[in-house]
Amino acid sequence: MSYKNILITKENSIATITINRPTKLNALNKETIEELHKAFQELEKNYETRVVILTGSGEKAFVAGADIAEFSEFSVEEGVQLAAQGQDILFNFVENLKIPVIAAVNGFALGGGLELAMACHFRIASDNAKMGLPEVSLGVIPGYGGTQRLPQLIGKGRAMEMILTAGMVTAEDAYRMGLVNNVIPQAELLDYCNGIAQKIMRNSPLAISSAIKSINANYKDGENGFETEIKSFGKCFGTEDFKEGTTAFLEKRKAVFTGE
């Protein structure tokens, strides 16, 4: 499938999605959100894809925000639909993807860009990255999950401060807060993320999917994370990956997982 606003490369079961709107600092518009949904959907169906790295084109921005011109004249009803649809087809979709998604945050990650990075399973930032949710300076609030995921990651007080001041934080500040897992020189960012992806791929794809589901369950209303973990743990015992993993351990060799 061909895309207008994103690029996809694949190597050794690692897919890299690059948001490619450099003249707009990779800002998210409706078309880009829909393309990202389709791309993630296709990659999840492809059993050869084991990890996805998400980044932005150029050195200035991961995603500098949403495309404000696209919704500046929206009504209340249109605003509600914009947030609901975006959360459904992209942000929540990425969070619940069965394969790990690493956000390689190069440069600015603002508004919808930071919300997209937070929807990924974890984040690695370039040393020039700056992050923030400046929506209140436009008379609106984060609508793609920012008011929910930011407190989960850095705590209520810090999230309140970031959102209410509309301020940005540096990559090092984000690291100290727990918003990103590590800070890497920009030239080395994708290589570092690929290195993490290689480590992930040594492990059972089925177990990884179950771990993602169980971790996410703790943050969902009406779902008991411990119960989800117990059920997922039990299901692992019926997989070929479990048999291979335990046999390899006992035989003192490296496991070869098939995802079955």
Rank of each mutant, 00 (worst) to 15 (best):
I8D: 06
N12Q: 11
I17T: 03
T18F: 04
N20S: 12
R21G: 07
L25Q: 11
L25S: 08
K30E: 15
K38E: 12
E42Q: 13
K45R: 12
E48D: 15
E59S: 14
E59G: 07
K60S: 11
A66H: 01
D67C: 09
E70C: 04
F74H: 08
S75I: 00
E77H: 05
V80Y: 12
Q81R: 13
L82N: 02
A83M: 09
Q87F: 01
K98Q: 11
G112N: 03
L114A: 01
L114C: 01
C120W: 03
I124E: 00
A129K: 02
E135A: 12
V136R: 15
G139N: 07
L153T: 05
M160A: 09
E161L: 13
M162L: 15
I163Y: 04
G167S: 15
Y175L: 14
R176A: 07
C193H: 07
N194H: 12
A197T: 04
K199C: 13
P205G: 05
I212R: 06
K213W: 00
N216C: 11
N216A: 10
A217C: 05
N218K: 10
N218H: 12
K220V: 14
E223N: 06
E223R: 10
N224A: 08
G225Q: 01
I230V: 15
E240M: 09
D241P: 10
E244L: 09
A248L: 10
F249G: 06
L250N: 12
E251D: 14
